[in-house]
Amino acid sequence: MNTETAPLESRDWTRRDALKGIGATLGVAAFAKALAPLTEWTQDLSVDQFLQKHYKELSPMDLAIVLARLEKETKEQYGADVSIKDYKAQPGVKFGYALNLSICIGCRKCAEACHIENNHDRPSAQSYIRVFEMQKGSLDMEKGNAHYDHPVPQKDKFYMPVQCHHCDHPPCVSVCPVEATWKEPDGIVVVDYNWCIGCRYCEAACPYHARRFNWTKPQIPAEEINPDQSYLSNRIRPQGVMEKCTFCLHRTRNGKLPACLEACPTGARVFGNLLDPNSEIRKVLAEKRVFVLKEELGLKPNFFYFFDV
């Protein structure tokens, strides 16, 4: 107990100490300067936003406050008057989607409709749908190309749009460390954009390239903003969080068809309630030879493909 060496208080202050003091001060100043961009960043953030609870923990009152705040933020940051609602899953509904590969011509109108409906970042031409031009006679994605830029359809090709498959065993949900993404009772896999920490593990886990990250703050002119928004779907996402296809839940939970289906000029898309035996989607499953992508992964997608012939 008494062999301690060099007790601090017993030393005299020297020039060396003064220099050290100056050095330390300079260091702290440099550190503050280096981190200055953080100050600018926090100007767009509010304490309420920072402290906001997880979606599932919000009481109806909390939620109303959050929605009002988000509308206000959209007005401040984007200059648009929007309405942000929260639509809940309907009982007795589980959504399914099917796509007729014989009919799709690869015009990418669906991707464009998604871009507009879901208030995607304009400069990056973001969309939840990626359309692949595939070689006829092969389902090998390696022969696919999403960057085709010639009139479609080409004779020896078929076209395969890919979006979120809303799997029954979604790996993206299992891997999320903070439960920021989950599967809703109607089968839709959603993200709480105000809870996601942006680690992108879900993006690595998804085998369908269905998830997108907001690499920057989305840019979108006020007049192009779709004002009918909902918390879990198409409200303008914050920077640095994941987003994904929600089957347009702000539309589909109100009984409407998703935007990509309405935009499809050829009627290649079929959407409906898998639990309703009379629904169109059930008829596809009953009448057509249906397949899912990467079935061997065992993820049980709710997005089906079929050929007419």
């Binding site: 990418r108 464009e112 960057h147 830029d149 010639h150 009139p151 479609v152 359809p153």
Partner: peptide, 11 residues
């Protein structure tokens, strides 16, 4: 169905 030019090239 007529041949069309695709829209919104992906980036």
């Amino acid at each position: 169905y007529p041949v069309v030019q695709p829209v919104l090239p992906p980036k």
